[in-house]
Each structure stands twice: as C-alpha cells, then as structure tokens.
Amino acid sequence: MVVRRRRRRVFHRRKICRFCADSSLKIDYKDPKTLRYFVTERGKIIPRRISGNCARHQRQLSLAIKRARHIALMPYTTTTTF
C-alpha cells in the first residue's frame, strides 16, 4: 500500500499557470479558440485546481468565458446525447 502510494507520488507535477508562463497568451472573450482549452467538452469552466491557473488569471478567464457565452461565441451547454 505504502509502496504504491510512493510510486504514484512521482507523477505529481506542480502545475503552472499557462498565462503567467507565456505572456504572449492573452485572455480575450473574442477569442473562443484559446478559451476552449479551459472548458470541458460539456462547456463547463475547468476549475483552478485542475487547470493550474493562478487566481488572477482564472478570474479573468472565467469572466472572458462568461462574456463569450453571452455573445454566442461559446456554448452555455451542449445538447449532444451520450
């Protein structure tokens, strides 16, 4: 049990905020192509603990996604049946 846990720990990598690492990457509600990497297939915003974004950029990102949804550039939800 303990051994297994240790082996898995190795995979744990510290996530870095993609927007902090690459300053050329801008958060813009008019650019759904970039925003799409931060929502699930269903269109839900991916939480910070998974995407690894910093608080500041996650805040800007969620605002941008919400604006993009409002102007029909991104979906609020998808209607595909699984």
């Binding site: 297994r4 846990r5 898995r8 996530k15």
Partner: peptide
C-alpha cells in the same frame, strides 16, 4: 494533466 488528477483521486480513496 487530466490523467494525473484522476490518479490522485484514486490514491485518496484507497488510503
């Protein structure tokens, strides 16, 4: 990244 997080979740439930 997503596969990592899944594994983490597994460990938690086991322990």
């Amino acid at each position: 990244e997503s596969s990592e997080t899944e594994e983490e979740a597994e460990v938690d439930t086991e322990s």
